Amino acid sequence: MTAFWDVLAATAILLGALLALTAAIGIVRFPDTLSRMHAAAKPQVVGMVLVLAGAVIRLRGNVDIWMLVLVGVFTLLTAPVIAHVVGRVAYREQRGRDGLEMVGDLERRDRT
């Protein structure tokens, strides 16, 4: 039974590392900020949660598991907020460069 848990932990860690690698490649390869934001937010967070889950499976019975759980929870709570803020800033910055002189929805909401 120990071999099963070791294989499951190794699989989760490898899948998480693969997702983090694809996120890093996406950040480098994508042309604009909004595309890079998607690559940074989605697969990187899921990859890190998989790596943490693999580490929790491997360290079962250890006291350090709760620290890994806290890292995963805080990442899941903060990553969407960071992606939202980066998206808003990118939207505001790109609007001026693209020649869009119209006032966007985000700016109208900020004034009210």
Rank of each mutant, 00 (worst) to 15 (best):
M1I: 06
M1A: 13
T2G: 15
T2R: 14
A3M: 13
F4S: 13
D6N: 10
V7S: 11
L8V: 13
A9E: 10
A10E: 12
A10L: 13
A12H: 07
A12L: 15
L14C: 15
A17H: 02
L18P: 03
T22G: 02
A23C: 02
A23I: 00
A24F: 00
A24E: 00
I25D: 00
R29H: 05
P31G: 02
P31K: 06
D32T: 04
D32N: 09
T33F: 11
T33H: 07
T33W: 07
T33Y: 06
L34I: 13
L34C: 03
S35C: 03
M37Q: 12
H38P: 10
H38N: 07
H38A: 08
A39W: 04
A41I: 02
A41E: 11
K42V: 12
K42P: 01
Q44I: 01
Q44K: 03
G47Y: 03
G47M: 02
M48F: 11
M48A: 11
M48Q: 11
V51H: 02
V51P: 07
L52E: 03
A53F: 09
G54N: 06
A55C: 09
V56Y: 02
V56C: 12
I57R: 03
I57E: 08
I57Y: 02
I57L: 15
I57G: 10
R58T: 04
R60Q: 14
G61A: 05
G61H: 01
G61M: 05
D64N: 13
D64P: 05
D64R: 07
D64Y: 14
D64W: 12
I65A: 12
I65P: 06
I65M: 13
W66S: 13
W66T: 12
W66E: 10
M67E: 12
V69T: 09
V69A: 15
F74L: 15
T75F: 03
T75V: 14
L76I: 10
L76D: 04
P80A: 02
A83P: 09
A83G: 07
A83M: 02
H84E: 00
H84I: 01
V85N: 07
V86E: 07
G87M: 06
G87E: 00
V89I: 14
Y91D: 11
Y91W: 08
R92V: 12
R92H: 13
E93M: 14
Q94K: 10
Q94M: 14
R95M: 13
G99D: 04
L100Y: 01
L100F: 05
E101L: 14
E101K: 11
E101Q: 12
V103T: 15
V103L: 10
G104D: 15
D105V: 13
L106A: 10
R108W: 04
R109S: 09
R109P: 01
D110C: 09
R111W: 05
